[in-house]
Design a protein around this nucleic acid. Structure first.
Length: 828
DNA sequence: CTAGGGTTAG
């Protein structure tokens, strides 16, 4: 057995209509936002009163449910004190708080002293809320219990319990909140809408959407009628817990059916659901719906709306929204700015991000902790360490101490540049400042060390991580798996995959995409059969009896011992491609929905494969999973004319909704694959479509062609198209600019970093077509020529012929042979 | 009951 045979029976999904909804031409390219664990969901509701929103250009296809990663929980701000309107407590309550806060104070005594003066539940609520806000849970709980015990009236006890639950919930103490709730119910004062709503809110804050819904059902079963606050809390839980929009809209529908009118907060929370799910179009629909219903927008609405726009890569729209805010006199605050700035940075518009910081300062908005960390992270990720460190100094001079986020950004930045000494120094400094490294700190460090081959350091950090009692999550493991894949150590990554599964942590689409990427890199990697078998045949139950010794430590120590484990050479590319099919099946089995990144990774693997048959076979097989997406890739590869292009355009529309780097990766991968297999005209069609949709910024002017963000295949196709357009300028009787240049950059964006593949490909292309360009003396990433020389060349008789591209293959079946012809063609 | 910041795939 040399490689795992992929299962032959077709998987359940029907190629004809993967969409339950009404989009016959809709392509099911799953967008890469917020990967989640797979869970199953009920079918879409038929009687959605949200029809106007969900059936207009909806982006439901993007949303294949499940829980999202822990990052959303860690993102939440606990301990944010509540801004209360009118205070109902007496001055005695404040005195009691002062007394209780004194050093050495015994709370029980303070409570007894003030018992006669405190005026019932409002005073006690004030007291334990303040204690809770200070993080003194035990004191808050004792105070609450004291208050409940001395209170006779049931409804007052109920008030106390609801307040306590919501205070605990806001601080992330969800278990304590549960306990208070249970006790309250058992003792007969917890069976109120308020207590239930508070508990739902507590679950919401911690991202436990399913639990919130479960409690909601229990509440209805016990005969209580949910009110506006209940529904709002529940929708909030959907947003925080990563539920899909469908789920939230079902709650919304139910709310309407029960005659509860949604308010501003309802809509703000619905918008937040869109933000998590990456549903820009839906968010726009909601925003319009608010206007239609006469519900005023506030700063929350706008900030959330901006967040959705930025997450969807719609930075220009974000600017429009900001001007709308000004017009409506809803003034942007720190949240507004840090949201949009981050959006700019994500979209690669750094100049704009930095100018927004200036704008912010000019507007008199002082940078806060988040703003500073955003700025610092931008610099750190660019490797601009002087600037990053200067931001951290400015931050401290403003009285904001560096926190874990600051350090994590610095560690990541320095680590990515291989500045290990600096990494170690920062890590020590962080601990010296009494900041506890968190899960992210550890995964960053371990990944940095693995990538650098510093396995011993990786082990040390991992051991420390274990000593801290932190629990690894899917992101933690995925990061390490990716690091190992990047080192070409697929077999070690598969051990980690096994290990995480045994620990009960399900891999997600990101985990698998890392692995698929590693398969593509076949020449430098060991993609031997054994590890692949492991990857596709993970069994949930533990095979190894796990002793006190941690398996990950064993794996890392093995690495340390072997040092360079890039051993045996693979049996060839054919095997790699079929391995991908196996991985794909495995993903399907685990209900992990592949997305556009999976698609790009697979196409990249095809581009590295010399066999057309293998590539087309793989794509054809994958049509069984997703005929629309892989049908386009396969159809273009086969040179099919009719039908495919229409479908391709609809695929491109889908991609256009995604952020620029996702979109360009997609176009790069698809064009590369087509170019690689001689479908050059097809490649050019795709690349021009990408250009038309501005996937690569500023690619094209008469005097300069900037290819630095493109893959080799895309760039080659683009060069042809550009030269042809220049040719028509010449033949139109116009002058060319004095200097023409073609930028390839330094290979920074190449799939294999720093190898200059793009530059070499363009150099080869220019030579082969006889284009008179030379490498510029002052810039090795630029080819130049003069307008006159190029014009003369373009006028030569043979030039047009070399510039016009053709497909090696056209029409279905023309070049089909071998096993492929034995396969049934699938309906398109 | 509502808003922004560090992490994984390309």
């Amino acid at each position: 057995m040399s490689f795992p045979t992929p299962p032959l029976q077709p998987p359940p999904p029907q190629p004809t209509s993967p969409h339950p909804r009404n989009h016959p031409h809709k392509v099911s390219l799953n967008r890469p936002t917020h990967p989640r664990h797979a869970t199953t969901h009920p079918p879409p509701s038929q009687n959605s009163s949200f029809l106007s929103l969900s059936s207009s250009r909806s982006d439901f296809s993007a949303d294949f449910s499940g829980r999202r990663s822990t990052r959303f929980v860690s993102k939440m701000h606990f301990n944010r004190p509540r801004v209360s309107g009118t205070s109902r407590h007496s001055s005695f309550a404040e005195q009691a708080l002062t007394e209780a806060s004194k050093n050495g104070a015994v709370l029980d005594q303070v409570l007894l002293t003030f018992e006669s003066k405190l005026l019932g539940s409002d005073d006690y609520t004030f007291l334990f809320r303040e204690l809770g806000n200070k993080g003194e849970w035990l004191a808050a709980m004792r105070c609450f219990e004291f208050a409940v015990r001395r209170e006779r009236r049931r409804n007052e006890q109920g008030k106390l319990a609801s307040s306590m639950i919501s205070i605990l919930g806001r601080s992330g103490k969800v278990e304590l909140a549960e306990k208070v709730f249970e006790t309250a119910v058992n003792e007969g004062y917890g069976n109120t809408v308020y207590a239930y709503s508070a508990l739902i809110g507590a679950y919401a804050k911690s991202g436990y959407c399913n639990e919130a819904i479960r409690v909601f059902e229990t509440m209805k079963d016990s005969g209580l009628k949910p009110n506006l606050v209940t529904y709002n809390a529940l929708i909030d839980a959907c947003g925080k817990g990563g539920a899909d929009f469908k789920r939230a809209s079902e709650i919304f529908d139910e709310m309407l059916r029960n005659g509860v009118q949604p308010d501003r907060i309802t809509f703000n929370s619905l918008l937040a659901v869109c933000s998590g799910a990456g549903l820009w179009e839906t968010a726009r629909g909601l925003f319009n719906e608010m206007v239609y219903r006469g519900i005023d927008q506030d700063i929350y609405t706008y900030n959330t709306f901006l967040d959705v726009a930025c997450n969807g890569g719609q930075v220009d729209v974000a600017f429009d929204i900001m001007s709308e805010m000004h017009a409506k006199n809803i003034l942007p605050n720190q949240v507004t700015y840090s949201t949009v700035i981050r959006g700019c940075a994500k979209a690669g518009r750094l100049d704009k991000a930095l100018s927004l910081f200036n704008e912010m300062k000019c507007a008199g908005i002082t940078l806060d902790r988040v703003s500073y960390n955003t700025l610092l992270a931008i610099y750190a990720s660019l490797g601009k360490f002087d600037e990053a460190l200067s931001v951290s100094r400015e931050m401290e001079s403003m009285g904001i101490k560096k926190d874990v986020v600051t350090y994590n950004a610095l560690l990541d930045g320095f680590g990515k540049q291989g500045r290990y000494a600096k990494v170690k120094q920062l890590f020590a400094e962080m601990k010296a400042e009494n900041l506890s490294p968190n899960l992210l700190t550890y995964s960053t460090l371990i990944s940095v060390y693995l990538k650098g081959g510093l396995y011993q350091d990786a082990v040390e950090v991992y051991k420390e991580f274990k000593r801290q009692g932190l629990k690894a999550d899917v992101v933690f493991y995925s990061k390490l798996i990716d690091a190992l894949c990047k080192k070409g150590l697929v077999e070690y990554s598969s051990l980690l995959l096994n290990e995480m599964t045994k620990e009960g942590i399900q891999p997600n689409v990101v985990t698998y995409n890392s692995i698929i990427n590693a398969f593509g890199e076949s020449t430098s990697n060991d993609c031997g059969s054994d590890n692949v078998t492991q990857i596709v045949s993970i069994v949930p139950e533990s095979k190894v009896v796990c002793t006190a010794e941690d398996n990950i430590i064993k794996i890392f120590e093995q690495l340390t011992a072997q040092k360079t484990a890039n051993g045996k050479k693979t049996n060839g590319e054919k095997q790699d491609l079929l391995c991908i099919l196996g991985v794909f099946h495995k993903m399907h089995e685990l209900q992990i929905k592949p997305n556009v990144v999976t698609f790009s990774a697979i196409l990249n693997a095809c581009s590295r494969c010399s066999s057309f048959d293998e590539a087309s076979l793989l794509l054809e097989e994958l049509r069984l999973f997703d005929n629309q997406v892989y049908g386009v890739a396969h159809g273009l590869l086969m040179g099919q004319q009719e039908g495919v292009w229409t479908q391709a355009l609809s695929l491109f529309n889908e991609v256009k909704q995604m952020d620029s780097s996702t979109a360009s990766a997609f176009y790069n991968a698809l064009t590369d694959m087509l170019w690689h297999f001689g479908q050059k005209q097809g490649a050019q069609l795709v690349v021009l479509e990408g250009k038309r949709r501005e996937v690569w910024e500023n690619t094209w002017s008469t005097s300069c062609l900037d290819l630095h963000l493109m893959s080799s295949g895309a760039a080659c196709a683009m060069v042809h198209a550009w030269l042809l357009s220049i040719r028509s300028i010449v033949y139109g009787g116009h002058e060319l600019p004095k200097i023409l240049s073609i930028l390839t950059g330094w290979g920074k964006h190449s799939k294999i970093t720093g190898d200059g593949a793009l530059k070499r490909a363009i150099e080869g292309l220019l030579t082969s077509i006889g284009a008179p360009f030379q490498i510029a003396k002052c810039n090795i990433g630029r080819f130049i020529s003069t307008g006159a020389v190029v014009a003369a060349w373009l006028r030569e008789s043979g030039t047009l012929e070399v510039l016009v591209l053709h497909n090696d293959r056209s029409h279905l079946g023309a070049t089909r042979f071998g096993q492929i012809s034995n396969l049934q063609p699938l309906p398109l």
